[in-house]
Design a protein around this nucleic acid. Structure first.
Lengths: 167, 167
DNA sequence: ACCATCTGCATAGCCTGCCTATATAGAGGC
DNA sequence: GCCTCTATATAGGCAGGCTATGCAGATGGT
């Protein structure tokens, strides 16, 4: 991640090739992670809570699969979240083996707070930019979102059936 | 992170307000982290290696400060990296207390491999997009990079002297 | 009806990677 | 020659991931 000066004299010059776009995208992701993400609970924890909020009570195994972690990891995560009263467990009346995990009101509130906090923080940061920069970023984000969405879907699919360059 | 349907019927509609741009940016970062990042070594490890590669041998404490972790954390990280022969320690001849950390050839090679791997992977993913999407993404990335760069710099400054909305 | 097997989850034990508190050794001022 | 400051190390703890394995409930074959 040697991100001082990419290669030559480029500034608002176009990244023309696929590789250049890839590098620029990678850099954006790196910087975003480094500077714009929350640290209170983990990605998986937040994502799991969000899923429970959207989709209602779920099985442990289903959550693990959806979040891309192993079942023991999800068991542990749910135990931690349970200790914090962010989720509860309910026994499935139809199958004595399964545990249904449900988000609590406190969990929903945490999600809402996180969302508010991050949005505020980002909005504040956006306000530090010049109007031109802010406009440029707004336009770019709007333009990139649908394509990026599809890119990520393709990535998720590729992850399930491999055959790609690792690293 | 309730990212199913943002709010209403928006699709290629513009995120107009600051808050909407913030949400979209946040979502991009989240998805990028989730689907496009490497997992072989940690962010801090990769970033530290990159720094050592760019800036040459550094003190432990300086590295810790630059990477935003505590000194003991950096000590441990360097110990792990040393076990993997990615860095070496050199005693400072002028000050018996300090340890200068330097990247090894293996460390440089790892950085190069990671970079190649990620760039290839992203380039492959870009190739899965329609030409229109790829073009849109390329244009957007080009347009967003300078403004985003400044945004991140502002974020880094704000982190040092607080006074912002936490979460 | 019963046993075998499968399935869903829990447990044990290990690693990384972060933290705070504290110890230790060298540097520098007086 | 100390006292203090500074650079690093050590100890101990928690989150968050993994593999291997245990166990109880479900299910199908006979």
């Amino acid at each position: 991640m040697e991100y001082t000066q990419q290669s030559g004299a480029r500034e608002s010059d176009a990244p023309a090739t696929r590789e250049e776009v890839a590098e620029a995208l990678e850099r954006l992701a790196f910087l975003a992670v480094r500077h714009l993400t929350n640290r209170d609970i983990s990605f998986t924890a937040a994502s799991t809570l969000g899923r429970l909020s959207r989709e209602g009570p779920s099985r442990l195994t289903a959550l693990a699969a959806d979040e891309g972690v192993t079942q023991p990891s999800m068991t542990q995560l749910i135990q931690r979240l349970e200790r914090q009263d962010l989720v509860t467990r309910v026994d499935d009346p139809h199958d004595g083996r399964v545990v249904l995990v449900a988000i609590t009101d406190a969990g929903r509130e945490l999600l809402a707070e996180r969302r508010r906090g991050r949005t505020n923080r980002l909005a504040e940061l956006l306000a530090t930019l010049s109007p031109e920069d802010e406009q440029a970023l707004a336009t770019a984000v709007r333009a990139a979102t649908p394509a990026f969405q599809r890119l990520v879907e393709n990535a998720a699919r590729a992850r399930k059936s491999p055959g790609s360059t690792a690293s």
